[in-house]
Design a protein around this nucleic acid. Structure first.
Lengths: 163, 163
DNA sequence: GTAACTGCAAAGGATTTGCACAGTT
DNA sequence: AACTGTGCAAATCCTTTGCAGTTAC
């Protein structure tokens, strides 16, 4: 569905006089195929490696950096100590994430109230907002419903249906 | 003025059966003396070293971790690749930061609209929010006034009330 | 053809950890 | 004594970088 986005992204590379190497093309494709998964460099490298084991991790890092620079990607911090990436929204910066403590899932939020908040901040602090990062940590609807939280005083639980 | 907070923090250590060692006492004191500066582990270690060069960096890290666990501190990510810390508000989680791209200053925000936003998110996503992190990146009033920004060909026009 | 790109491995910076010693209870 | 806490240094983790060989344009 977002196939067009891929073309645009490739075009943006060309427009900025960068080469569309097979590595970059593959990485870009995977990024679009795994939209919404917030892949890290290493995860992406693993994905790349499925078909092209030759591609080095450094290349993945370099490509990620390049694509971020070109505003094709945006780095997001999900609090696990590594950078994760998502496709950058065309019109608007929109990293508002709901991070579930129980299952680790990441939902995206789009809420007009945030714009309201920005306006308020700009007005009250005289601060010109260029970008933002909003992250809510808590329990998603499902985990909350499951109530598997009250049992666990500490933490560690295997959320594994895959087992 | 916030001397009482220091005592409370020390008490919290004791309550949790941790010892108030000279290192911890010093670190805690410095943390209160440098409120609002968002010190990193290494900065704090340097401060500690002014009077007690013997204290190791690892101890600072360990203390920071401990104090965070005890909710005396909160780690904040200001985007410079290292963890920074601030005293945790008693009643309310409150890391809402305005990070100025020009001078690097960090302001704190307290805005009711954020609570409104939280409620909206809880209602619409069924997500139980336990904590949040909100960071706005842009230009503070002063840097904005100085207009040292318009020189930059990168960003050009856009939001220009100055017009 | 050639500057851009890649892969590899080594380097880098922040944070953690293993371990023997020191300080408390 | 039995632990907890500390200092040091080595280890770890993510990410970057140097360099020689490769390749897209």
């Amino acid at each position: 569905m977002k196939r067009r986005g891929l073309r645009e992204a490739e075009q943006r590379l060309a427009d900025a006089d960068y080469r569309l190497t097979p590595q970059r093309a593959l990485i870009l494709r995977l990024l679009f195929e795994h939209q919404g998964e917030h892949l890290s460099a290493e995860e992406l490298h693993a994905l790349v490696g499925r078909t092209n084991p030759e591609v080095g991790l450094a290349t993945v890092y370099r490509t990620l950096e390049l694509l971020t620079e070109l505003r094709v990607l945006q780095a997001v911090d999900l609090g696990d100590g590594r950078a994760r990436y998502e496709l950058a929204g065309e019109d608007r910066h929109s990293h508002h994430h709901l991070l579930c403590l129980s299952c680790g899932r990441v939902e995206e939020v789009r809420d007009d109230l945030l714009e309201r908040l920005e306006q308020s901040v700009e007005a009250e602090h005289g601060f010109a907002i260029l970008d933002h990062q909003v992250k809510f940590v808590g329990l998603c609807r499902e985990c909350r419903t499951r109530e598997r939280w009250k049992d666990d005083p500490e933490r560690g639980e295997g959320e594994g249906p895959g087992g």
